[in-house]
Design a protein around this nucleic acid. Structure first.
Lengths: 145, 145
DNA sequence: CTAAAACCTGACGTTGGCGTGAGGTGCAAG
DNA sequence: CTTGCACCTCACGCCAACGTCAGGTTTTAG
């Protein structure tokens, strides 16, 4: 399989695949003419890479995870690193949930403005239902299992 | 209130506050000597800005949201834009949930490697329980309400 | 055999939210 | 007055995952 086909099947750009090789995330054989040759499994591997990138892992971490998954060897300290990555992801999810709730408040306010805003404009504080609380959110619902 | 105090209370850098002004997200009066003067409400406003940035909104969108929230005026098309931002956030959350599940699979495999990997190394496909499916994930649980 | 895809290797550009000096000013205290 | 800290305005640096152009080679279709 050549690079263009892998790119199509995996839904990424050719440039991305070359970048993955440069970052040592995805190896390829070379044909006599110097062109990259991939096994079919490369497509799945690229999917995994994409998901890990989507999770916000840096390429260094992705590299280690890939080594672990595809070789069965466990480098020391990797587990701790994975756990901390997991924690970061959970934290990020909670951030996004909070932000989405906040945005929902704004949307609701926008959709039907409350009477207190119909006549009074340019309040110097946010008196809308989007309600920025003074110090700290109560951390409504978490997602950490 | 001067810039350093706002920065401390809001937990951001002075540089960030100046950047917000440059991006027209946070205005400030100036003292006779040219120093920025903020009302107390600026701290909450900065919190809101931070949350919107955390949600991945670009500064242009943040600017519009702020105008809406703090003035009560609804610019045309803003609602659609907010909805699409919300959708993006939800999509991002689902990506992260999927990635976290994937990572959990890797972690489980790492913690106690399955027998099939104890003797066979260098499988050309991922036969581990992290299990990259061939084409498309079934989109397990969504978070869009 | 030839033209057109598809591929190759550099190498520079992009994007955003700031970090980080450099070099100068405002302001309250001693 | 002068020390010293907080503040000011440029303006370049950064990081990551590629996009993109340039200029040349390999492979494939006819």
């Amino acid at each position: 399989m050549r690079i263009g086909e892998v790119a199509r099947q995996a839904g990424v750009s050719v440039r991305a695949l070359r970048y993955y090789e440069e970052q040592d995330l995805l190896q390829a054989e070379r044909s006599s003419g110097g062109q990259r040759q991939y096994p079919d499994s490369a497509v799945d591997r690229v999917h995994l890479i994409q998901q890990l990138f989507a999770a916000g892992l840096p390429s260094r971490s992705v590299r280690e995870v890939l080594r672990c998954v595809y070789s069965g060897t466990v480098s020391p300290g990797l587990l701790d690193q994975l756990e901390s990555e997991r924690a970061r992801i959970s934290g990020r999810i909670n951030e996004l949930l909070a932000a989405r709730d906040r945005l929902d408040g704004v949307i609701a306010t926008t959709r039907n403005p409350p009477p207190e805003c119909t006549h009074a404009q340019a309040l110097d504080g946010p008196a809308l239902s989007a309600a920025p609380s003074s110090t700290h959110r109560p951390a409504p619902r978490t997602t950490d299992r």
